[in-house]
Write a protein that binds this DNA or RNA. Structure first.
Lengths: 343, 343
DNA sequence: CTCAGCCGTTGGATCGATCAAGAGGACGAT
DNA sequence: ATCGTCCTCTTGATCGATCCAACGGCTGAG
């Protein structure tokens, strides 16, 4: 056997393949990277040798020479305990699959809340990744400006709320459209007093979603005054807010900025013996697992996270191609997963 | 300026630092990797140069020379839609943090269900990762045998159920102990007719958890006959199973192999107007977000996923050290998150 | 029969780090 | 004064792939 003299743990190299196929190293390299440059019979011979030896190019050597790692950095932000939102899971999965099809892999790193730039700098300077996917844009986005100044390629999941002049590619979901969808769904069901429970005013995303609710209400000349509440994103806050609204505004339906808040509403309704779905309708946001498995099911706005991932990778491929192509931002529309909580 | 002749996008190299500090390349390398070999004043001079230039070793070059990537491969298995379990999220986060502290990063890849080895092979042959963390061991573990035969370092989250002779390191959570904990909790509350709803018999994990229930029941000389059901892991199955058990066996409490099944039980109880928590107690498994936010809260067995991640990394460090150290398997104990569903 | 032109192939240099071995100086022992 | 040892630092080679420029054989025109 040709490998008898080699340690079994050492993978074959380009030179091994070349020798076996009776060609030079460059020819093997071309067979892998530019097959069209070879005569068909030579190509076949090299490919046979590659298959027989089980050759796969050494990543480190290739990375060194080409100055590219084919890795994409992603800061992994876990879902908070006690909330319903574990969107990261669905999103990351598609991201991994889609990037894999383009020859990229996802490299996870972590960073503390105190130092949002931690991790980015290291990976960048050590040329460990080719680009980043930035997801934590909920409260402005210091990373974007920083990465831009470092000339680091990156795409963002989330609009550059605090900087309309930002030039980086981004993909986002139209939260206002989602809330509008939810509200119109309830309006079509005959509800007129529809309450909103959302996040604090300093949340760009929260205000965006809220605007969809007001838009839908005003489009039908319905009042929104006294029907809205802005609280922390916890079940307890949602429960409390719903309780106050039920007492003071007597809504027949709720639209919430998150499934977490919606669960709080369900709790408040349960406290009063109100049958949700029949007496009072509730719609959440994010189509979390909670919305899917709670008895009867919680109607919820579903973000097209799979599509977001695909668009992000598409944008990244543009950025990393030569010459780089930076497309405009992409805004995707959510859908509504209708379940029993809205009748 | 010393870098005036260089393109601003090219990071400084070891040679740049060497020139600036007035030493050789190797000395800079030593300053980074073996500081104790340098005289203190030289070390300081080199470190100053490193700081001034913002130097960070090129990963690709280092990987090529040392034949190590400091990357750990993890196949990302997303949670299934319609189930409650999104444990991956909590687990992966700690994994990323812990591995980061040891200088490792997590590389995600995907693989189809049809080809469970897909992805592993590529990464291994291209020396893209140093080791793997294998998590999908629920139905036997073909990867383990394959990786072992390839002499690929890996650690598993999950016992080698189908192969007691396996020699790879593993970490697992004692599911039997978890179910026993849950059952004893209910027994202590005065329940005697405690039903079990678990998974199909071909699930090693399901049978393990079930054994904890029988052990606890038998320890108090209580019968288990007719009180158990084995179904698919869906809300609908749990609901159906609970309904049948309520009719035929009249249990006052349920222990379930998953939160998904427990949600099915809650649904079945709701169908009959039975107040869960007060009339009938329910305990789930995994302490998912669903368990945490469902009104009143679902008592659930909580796996110490953070600890699992830490132990896995510890085992990996042993495997990757020279000489490799392979410790025995580690079995961790779960805890019980008590909420209103169990009184 | 010669020569330009073309295609596919070749050897050598290169990416940036580490490994292995050696050079030079300081120091104490002989 | 000489030798050997220790300590610190330097030099040249190397990891495995790709880039570059030049080279070889084949073809067809003159």
């Amino acid at each position: 056997m040709s490998w008898s003299g080699r340690l079994s743990v050492t993978p074959p190299t380009l030179a091994d393949v070349a020798e076996r196929a009776g060609v030079s190293r460059q020819t093997v390299s071309n067979a892998v990277n530019n097959p069209e440059l070879l005569r068909p019979d030579t190509l076949a011979r090299v490919q046979d040798a590659i298959a027989e030896l089980g050759y796969s190019p050494n990543r480190a050597a290739r990375n060194l020479r080409t100055r590219a790692s084919h890795l994409i950095g992603l800061k992994f932000n876990p879902a908070q305990e006690g909330t319903a939102n574990a969107a990261m899971d669905r999103f990351v999965h598609t991201l991994v699959e889609t990037s894999g099809e383009s020859g990229y892999h996802i490299l996870l790193f972590s960073g503390s809340i105190a130092d949002p730039l931690g991790g980015y700098d290291d990976l960048l300077r050590s040329t460990a990744v080719d680009a980043f996917i930035v997801t934590d844009t909920y409260l402005g986005n210091p990373q974007a400006a920083w990465l831009t100044s470092r000339r680091a390629p990156f795409v963002a999941f989330g609009r550059p709320w605090d900087n309309p002049d930002a030039t980086h590619p981004w993909v986002d979901v139209d939260g206002a459209a989602g809330a509008e969808l939810a509200t119109n769904h309830l309006l079509d069901k005959g509800h007129t007093r529809i309450a909103w429970i959302g996040w604090r005013k300093d949340s760009f995303i929260g205000e965006d979603r809220r605007s969809g609710w007001t838009r839908a209400m005003h489009a039908r000349d319905l009042p929104t005054t006294g029907l809205a509440s802005r609280v922390e994103d916890t079940v307890a806050s949602g429960r409390e807010a719903a309780s106050v609204l039920l007492d003071e505004a007597h809504p027949s339906a709720f639209v919430c900025a998150s499934d977490t808040l919606a669960m709080g509403v369900l709790h408040a309704l349960g406290d009063r013996g109100i049958h949700w779905g029949q007496d009072v309708a509730v719609v959440g946001f994010d189509d979390s697992q909670v919305a899917q498995v709670v008895p009867g099911g919680l109607t919820s706005v579903r973000q097209p996270l799979e599509q977001v991932a695909v668009e992000l990778i598409k944008a990244l491929e543009g950025l990393l191609s030569t010459p780089p192509v930076a497309g405009p931002g992409v805004l995707l529309s959510p859908t509504l997963a209708v379940r029993l909580s809205s009748g």
